[in-house]
């Protein structure tokens, strides 16, 4: 399935993503940037192994769903329900739009 060389590159990409996430330490900025990069890369039609390294390795380790859940959990203890639903939808729509934006920019360049 995966050979040793590709697996090593995958590990290095994921370490890079993890440390970048650790240093930025802001969940909203991370998810926006990650979605943009994901859309940008998916439109380039790179090779299968390179796609695998960049998407499953770098982008997936850079963004984290558990951080998003933790972010919402902290809001639940402070704010009312209406505000939480609003935040949830803002995050979702802005991420989807950023991915679409990245996809379109990538298509325009190539």
């Amino acid at each position: 399935m995966i050979n040793v060389k590709n697996f090593l590159f995958l590990l290095i990409a994921s370490y890079f993503g993890t440390f970048l996430r650790f240093y930025v330490d802001n969940n909203f900025i991370i998810s926006i940037c990650g979605s943009f990069l994901f859309g940008f890369i998916i439109a380039r039609r790179l090779g299968k192994s390179l796609n695998h390294i960049l998407l499953s390795g770098f982008c997936s380790c850079f963004t984290s769903f558990s951080g998003f859940i933790f972010f919402l959990y902290r809001f639940i203890n402070q704010e009312d329900v209406l505000k939480i639903v609003l935040y949830l939808n803002i995050i979702f729509i802005s991420n989807l739009l950023m991915m679409y934006f990245g996809f379109m920019i990538s298509r325009k360049i190539s």
């Binding site: 996430r21 994901f38 380790c61 963004t63 984290s64 769903f65």
Partner: peptide
């Protein structure tokens, strides 16, 4: 656990990609 394991185990961008 939080930064290393959960951060790499879960993926937000793939979730958004499924929606995309």
């Amino acid at each position: 656990f939080y930064v290393g394991f959960l951060g790499c185990f879960s993926t937000f961008s793939s979730f958004i990609y499924d929606l995309f």
